[in-house]
Amino acid sequence: MNNKNIQLNKEGRLRHFLDIEGIKRQLLVEILDAAESFSSVEAQRVKKVPLLRGKTIVNLFFEPSTRTRNTFELAAKRLSADTLNVNISASATSKGESLLDMLHNLEAMHCDMFVVRHAQSGAAHFIAQHVAPHISVINAGDGSHAHPTQAMLDMFTIRRHKQAFADLKVAIVGDILHSRVARSQIHALTTLGVTEVRVIGPKTLIPDISTALGVHVYHDMWEGLREVDVVIMLRLQKERMTGALLPSEHEYYKLYGLTPEKLAVAKEDAIVMHPGPINRGVEISSEVADGPQSVILEQVSNGIAVRMAVMSILMGQSFSSDGEAGP
């Protein structure tokens, strides 16, 4: 893994957060611990800490996303940073201004952090390689590659329910091939030391080589869900039907949709997760999505604390709940 350490500075501290792969367990745990202390901030009446006062954070979204952008923006605001949202449609960049020109323009406005979402895998790496040295980059999703803050909020949610990672069996169901969320989850789960990560889906969405990621591949969902502690459902993109990857939503739901019957083969206390937005009746039934084992909405609120944690760690600010909590 040459140059993967672009994420770390000389002291081995996080400088950018681009990818879970290549980050040690200790740093991941540090993020989870920091998120734990920030989650108490959210419970307070005044939900703001002055950790990043005077810092400017730019949300640079080359792909439409309201949900992820909103949680990043809220996280920045609760840390007292100034935020700027820049939404760039793909057509605008192709019209002339190159990606690098745009970055250098924003740099000239003295920004401290870029939160980047882009449709191309490796885009956040590319930006991190070319920004001025004082700027940190957070990958908020690049193509099919990585979505590290989503994976960390999922880990945070799992830890809250299951305490230790060591004995867990986790199943991820759906389109692994195209999912940046799944890749980051797999790296996070294996780094944090879970017993077994399973991926469930047809070969068109889970190529045979996936085992190289350290996962067990199941094409039969009934078999794959047996005795698991955590079920992570992935969103199925509609365009997978047109690409001859799947015959129909109907058949997909029949084989890989999470229903109460299928969930029953998992452990009794298994939790059900989904990065959202959910397609009811495509990958998950409403009974399960709204049922007692679902932690889907919790994931959303945990997203803010985890993003606050990552932002403050990148800016070199630590925080403890019994220290300088709140203004």
Partner: peptide, 8 residues
């Protein structure tokens, strides 16, 4: 494997 990891 490399393409899969890089999401390309």
């Amino acid at each position: 494997v490399v393409g899969l990891r890089l999401g390309l």
